[in-house]
């Protein structure tokens, strides 16, 4: 070993974040039946379930029309996929892979970034699947509106990628995914993703604005519904993302200190 050679060694750029790593992570997702089930099968089932609802709604009022319902399900799918993706850190912690990675130049922030990006990719798949179903089912929107809604439904799911990371660092591996399914389901129902809030009991209508699903779906539906943009939606999204992000970061630090 030649000491001159050692002097030239450098740390990786971007803390080790790179496309090879990302590609292998994506391949892992594709191979995993559970992630495919969550990102594709669950939104498809929900979409079919609410079909009857939409038919009835389409006849009565445009507000509760097929597009309105479709966006709700797309946001739900994107959230479920993103949170499940984030929660995969729980499995990697349990395996000891996180500890193995600490023997490499990979920075913790780059690891989190990889997990967030893959979680968001899963979310994007869900959005696209639901949109294809919607278009097939007669939802007819200008191309710009498709793109805007799609982008909003997808980007706001960052809230849930952060929630997934938080739960992934909070809970043991198997529990994380088991908690996420029902949790995202209940939050989606209360946040008005499946059934319009105006048809819900008063209590739910009062709680809804404080749930982490509310801001996301209201923003995603805004291009569709129009009217005035409520700043509180944005406050809701930013607030919950920050809260989950900070909690995840705190737990992550606790996790790496314990050796």
């Amino acid at each position: 070993m030649n000491l001159d050679r050692l002097a030239n060694r450098a740390s990786p750029p971007l803390g080790g974040f790179n496309l090879t790593f990302l590609a292998i992570e994506v391949r892992r997702l594709v191979r995993n039946r559970r992630t495919l089930l969550i990102t594709i099968v669950v939104p498809v089932i929900l979409f079919e379930l609410f079909k009857v609802n939409r038919k009835l709604a389409a006849a009565s009022s445009s507000e509760f029309g097929p597009a309105f319902s479709m966006v709700g399900i797309a946001v739900y799918g994107s959230m479920l996929a993103a949170s499940a993706g984030g929660a995969r850190v729980a499995i990697e912690r349990a395996l000891g892979w996180s500890r193995q990675l600490r023997l490499t130049p990979l920075r913790p922030a780059a690891y989190i970034a990889i997990k967030l990006v893959t979680a968001m990719l899963l979310g994007l798949v869900s959005v696209v699947v639901v949109f294809v179903l919607g278009a097939n089912d007669g939802v007819d929107l200008p191309i710009a509106t498709w793109l805007t809604i799609g982008l909003l439904a997808w980007l706001t799911s960052l809230v849930f990628a952060a929630l997934g990371l938080f739960l992934g660092y909070l809970l043991p591996s198997e529990n994380a995914l088991q908690v996420i399914g029902p949790l995202v389901g209940v939050l989606s129902l209360v946040g008005g993703l499946f059934i319009p809030l105006s048809l819900m009991p008063d209590l739910v209508q009062q709680i809804a604005p404080f749930t982490p699903t509310y801001g996301v779906v209201e923003i995603a539906r805004f291009p569709l519904v129009g009217g005035s943009f409520d700043v509180l939606w944005l406050v809701n999204v930013v607030g919950w993302t920050a809260a989950f992000g900070v909690l995840a970061a705190l737990l992550f630090r606790r996790d790496t200190r314990r050796t």
Binding site: G16, N18, T20, I24, P105
Partner: peptide
Amino acid sequence: AAVLQSGGLLKDITVRETVRLTASLYVT
């Protein structure tokens, strides 16, 4: 570099993919 017992490995990728992933984290 180190070989630790406590360091776990991902079960759902191949041996070569594991090494490729790790290699991608180093500058050289």
